[in-house]
Computed example of a mutant assay.
Amino acid sequence: MTKIQKRALTLLVGSQLLIMLGIGLIIPVEPYIKDDMGLTATDMGIMAALFAAVQFVASPIIGKISDKFARVPLIAAGLFFFAVSEAVFAFGIGNALWLLNLARALGGLAAALSIPSITALAADMTTNDNRARVIGWLSASFSGGIILGPGIGGVLANINHTLPFVGSAVLGATAFLIFMIFMPKDEDLRVKNIAETTQSQTKTIRNFWTVALVMLLLMIFVASFGLSAFENMFSLYFHDVRGFNLTEIAWFLVINGAVSLFFQVILFEKLVMLVGELMVIRISFMAGFVAILWILFSQSKWEVFIATLIIFVGFDILRPAITTMLSKIDNEQQGFINGLNMSLTSVGNIIGPVLGGVLLDINSFLPYSFVAVILVIASVLTFTVKFKPA
């Protein structure tokens, strides 16, 4: 990669890390916002679903726009709306549920503007030979933000429940300014010439909906239900069912974040080279299923700790593996493909948290039993995919 591409990659990784950090901040604070404001688990699930609903509608539209025009301005807009959403959420805590819901909707718009465009721009900057490494870094920032965010949020929330979101808003505004000043233009970053893209448009449209693409998207659609139910309800399960306190949840997430980052940054590319993306996906699903069963039958906090660590690490390897496979299907419509990826993930994120909250209100074991069934279905789907890069 050239120096200008390396600078751009640093800004992309930093931007995605910050946005996912903001998304993750809420997770350890959820039980306390729920208790302080007298909310139900279903209310918390709906709040998370609003984020996903906006992301679902906006992601493919914005992805298509980024393919036709430019990706960098959309990423900048995402950073701006991120800062606004975090500020609104901080103000809404203890005041009104509708403000919290508004903030999550704005956060969904910020994610839709930035995340598909960031991944698509990374694909523009790379070839098949070095793409897994770059996607690994981006995925590390994605999952690292989600996992480290709750750890940081838990520590700051011990001081004040609004402090994590105030700090995130300030960081978001700062990142927006830095990005606007130092980020190169799209045309300075692309590996492939624009003329080649125009020349191949007819072929791209005709061959876009391949069997491999459809099956990968279906896999994302099915898996997102289980993953979102687990990720959004896990802190409530830890706190309400297993008796973890805020500090224990925060430390778990910090340790888990460090392990996941190690796997994504150091081991992911090696795993892909050794067994391929599809086998990595299959192993992640199967390991998650076994770990869910372990949690359901576990008797101690340490068992829950280790099993949950296995699940999170599996999820964090799963995401870049699917993204890398998608990036090799069609080089000319990466914005649209990543928009579809985020949109279908959002469908699961809309229903998963709500269903998880309802199931948790009924019985503490139902959400994880639901996730186990979903992981079995997703594992079976991996055997239907036959993949050849574009």
Score class of each variant (00 low, 15 high):
residue 298 S to P: 08
residue 217 L to A: 07
residue 9 L to W: 03
residue 252 F to E: 01
residue 92 G to T: 03
residue 250 A to R: 00
residue 158 N to Q: 15
residue 341 N to D: 11
residue 267 L to I: 07
residue 327 S to W: 02
residue 170 V to S: 02
residue 284 S to V: 04
residue 166 V to D: 08
residue 122 A to Q: 00
residue 185 K to S: 15
residue 168 S to L: 00
residue 18 L to I: 02
residue 206 R to Q: 15
residue 27 I to N: 15
residue 91 F to M: 14
residue 208 F to C: 00
residue 170 V to K: 02
residue 296 L to C: 03
residue 3 K to I: 13
residue 321 A to C: 02
residue 285 F to W: 02
residue 47 M to K: 10
residue 143 S to I: 12
residue 265 V to C: 09
residue 32 Y to E: 07
residue 77 A to C: 11
residue 179 F to P: 01
residue 281 I to Y: 05
residue 262 F to E: 08
residue 302 W to V: 12
residue 40 T to K: 06
residue 135 I to M: 03
residue 244 F to W: 04
residue 366 L to I: 06
residue 64 K to M: 13
residue 74 L to K: 06
residue 44 M to L: 11
residue 273 M to F: 13
residue 137 W to S: 13
residue 213 L to Q: 04
residue 163 L to Y: 12
residue 267 L to Y: 06
residue 170 V to L: 06
residue 24 G to K: 04
residue 288 G to Y: 07
residue 270 K to P: 15
residue 164 P to W: 02
residue 300 S to K: 09
residue 265 V to H: 10
residue 360 L to Y: 02
residue 213 L to N: 10
residue 329 I to R: 05
residue 359 L to P: 01
residue 382 T to C: 01
residue 257 G to A: 10
residue 272 V to Y: 13
residue 137 W to E: 11
residue 334 Q to M: 11
residue 258 A to H: 08
residue 235 S to L: 04
residue 252 F to G: 01
residue 217 L to R: 03
residue 390 A to V: 14
residue 263 F to V: 05
residue 387 F to Y: 13
residue 38 G to E: 01
residue 381 L to S: 07
residue 120 A to N: 00
residue 24 G to Y: 03
residue 156 L to C: 02
residue 380 V to C: 09
residue 214 V to S: 15
residue 308 T to G: 08
residue 236 L to T: 06
residue 102 L to A: 09
residue 387 F to K: 12
residue 30 E to V: 15
residue 114 S to G: 11
residue 40 T to W: 06
residue 279 M to A: 08
residue 285 F to L: 01
residue 302 W to K: 09
residue 246 L to A: 14
